[in-house]
């Protein structure tokens, strides 16, 4: 296995993550996904893509540009048509995984294992199992991964996300750890089922579920599409904060450039790296979308 070239430019250490190692979790070179529907051919080209540990990667684009397709491939649920390099490296000393190899051998179990152990998911409307309470949803992923004694951690994260009361029955010990931010939400929704809570709460719960399995990467697909702008900013910013404090990277797809870029409230952008798409039409009925990194962040 060739060593993965660390792309320094994307690996800016963060202020609150100063001790994080600079290592690459996902590394992609010359990935192509071809889709055709009738006469129409759509090609997504990703010449270079990588996710560094402890970074917030934004994938921004209009609908139809292939951002969700890219996310599916990053989330290990969609097989790329081809790729020169598609490596995945989790922690726990597992070493490099050649994702293309697994796809070629159609090893569903191995893909499931990688998803279970390394990836967390936050979907547009949460993607929580409706028949489990928020708490059970969060516990489910940690149980699937085989983690033990995670209740306290889940409770702490939930408090930080503002969906569990502080010093409530979930806290076995009063740790006196204050969440950095008080979101002013004092409702405890941990014992509720997803259908019984508001959209914003559900997205916070989804973030909780994604964090609960202590993943390397969290894949988030328009996680704030269903909430208003003000709450979306709040949610994304606490999402980033918690993810980075848990040493997890975030890949978030959004069509909303403002959400991840610089805002009036935030003088620094949420995204450490932003990828965008450029559409080309090399032939009739052929759409080619090229994904590229935008180096405007963190400035």
């Amino acid at each position: 296995m060739s060593t993965i070239k660390v792309m320094k430019s994307f690996a800016q250490p963060l202020v609150d993550n100063s001790n994080a190692n600079v290592d690459t979790i996902v590394s992609i070179k010359n990935l192509v996904k071809r889709r055709s529907a009738g006469n129409e051919v759509f090609e997504l080209h990703v010449p270079k893509f990588s996710i560094q540990r402890g970074t917030f990667v934004a994938i921004v684009g209009e609908s139809g540009c292939g951002k969700s397709t890219l996310l599916d491939m990053l989330g290990l649920v969609l097989k790329p048509t081809s790729a020169n390099v598609f490596h995945f490296k989790g922690d726990a000393g597992e070493g490099l995984v050649d994702v293309m190899d697994i796809w070629r051998s159609a090893n569903e179990r191995e893909l499931a294992r990688l998803r279970r152990e390394h990836i967390g998911y936050v979907l547009q409307t949460g993607g929580l199992l409706p028949f489990l309470t928020i708490k059970k949803n969060a516990q489910l992923v940690s149980r699937l991964k085989g983690l033990r004694h995670t209740d306290e951690k889940i409770n702490r994260l939930a408090q930080q996300l503002g969906i569990a009361k502080k010093n409530n029955q979930y806290g076995n010990h009063d740790t006196n750890k204050q969440s950095q931010q008080d979101n002013g939400i004092s409702i405890d929704i941990m014992e509720k089922k997803p259908a019984k809570v508001s959209g914003g709460q559900r997205q916070r719960a989804a973030i909780l579920r994604a964090l609960a399995s202590q993943p390397d990467v969290i894949i988030a697909d328009e996680p704030t599409a269903a909430v208003d702008k003000r709450r979306a900013v709040q949610i994304v910013s606490i999402f980033k904060q918690l993810a980075l404090s848990e040493n997890a990277s975030v890949v978030m797809v959004t069509h909303d450039t403002e959400l991840v870029g610089k805002t009036a409230e935030n003088n620094s952008a949420i995204a450490d790296v932003t990828y965008k798409f450029k559409l080309e039409y090399p032939a009739e009925n052929v759409t080619k979308s090229i994904c590229y990194a935008v180096g405007e962040n963190n400035g």
Binding site: G127, L144, S213
Partner: peptide, 15 residues
Amino acid sequence: RDISVMRLIGLSPGE
């Protein structure tokens, strides 16, 4: 959708 979520969070088709 729920079943696909189960698949997504790491259960294999057999499971």
